[in-house]
């Protein structure tokens, strides 16, 4: 997992938010490595320790803390510690974590998976080559597996997208108002985008 700490946000607040959001997803991130990008801000030894603590609490290991300089658009360039087959479409650990509500007119684009810690509002767009996970209300447009990966999935605590795309397939919400009552996952089954309730353990969690 790739964590980006926004410089303008209070460090402890960001950490607390991260911990809270991760709480329901222990198994999902277990065994993963964490890369932390503080965008030019350096972490004190104390802050370092806190990050490690939270990571280990969820079964993750801190691999690297980077202090990249802020630049315009920055797709994270993460080098995995273990070599991977070159043909692998997505580095499963190159996950971008976005904190806060994605609002109308805003676009998040990323090579890899995207995790949104907040809502994706109508008029907002997320485009990722991997999976898209929204720990909030998904009402905007999502394109997962954008470079053609048909096994990409879209998860949301409330899945009510304006439009959903996975690889080369497009689906829109049914016109009769279906109101989801819990977390749902969308994926391609038999050549169609299908949405079903998310049951922990049922589909191997990414």
């Amino acid at each position: 997992m790739y964590i980006l700490f926004d410089q303008t946000v209070d460090f402890l607040e960001a950490l607390d938010e991260l911990r809270r959001r991760l709480e329901g997803y222990q198994r999902f991130f277990e065994g993963g490595r964490v890369w932390i990008d503080t965008r030019g801000r350096s972490l004190s030894p104390m802050e370092w320790r806190l990050v490690e603590e939270v990571a280990s609490q969820f079964g993750m290991e801190v691999a690297e803390v980077g202090c990249r300089e802020p630049r315009g658009k920055r797709p994270p360039t993460v080098t995995p510690l273990r070599p991977r087959p070159a043909s692998h479409p997505v580095d499963p650990e190159a996950t971008r974590l976005v904190r806060g509500t994605i609002r109308s007119g805003q676009v998040v684009e990323h090579r890899g998976h995207v995790v949104i810690l907040g809502d994706l509002n109508p008029g907002a767009i997320v485009r990722a080559t991997g999976d898209v996970i929204v720990l909030g209300h998904l009402r905007g447009v999502v394109h997962a597996g954008a470079s053609g990966n048909r096994s990409a999935q879209v998860w949301a605590l409330r899945l009510e997208p304006t439009q959903l795309r996975i690889a080369d397939l497009i689906a829109r919400s049914p016109d009769d108002e279906h109101v989801p009552t819990g977390p749902e996952v969308a994926r391609i089954v038999d050549g169609w985008i299908q949405v079903e309730a998310y049951e922990p353990g049922a589909q191997g969690g990414g």
């Binding site: 303008t8 806060g100 609002r103 109308s104 007119g105 805003q106 509002n121 109508p122 008029g123």
Partner: peptide, 15 residues
């Protein structure tokens, strides 16, 4: 409301 959302995003981007 959609436009308000857009504006809120832009305000946040401007601190």
């Amino acid at each position: 409301v959609r436009d308000a959302d857009r504006i809120i995003g832009m305000l946040e981007a401007r601190d």
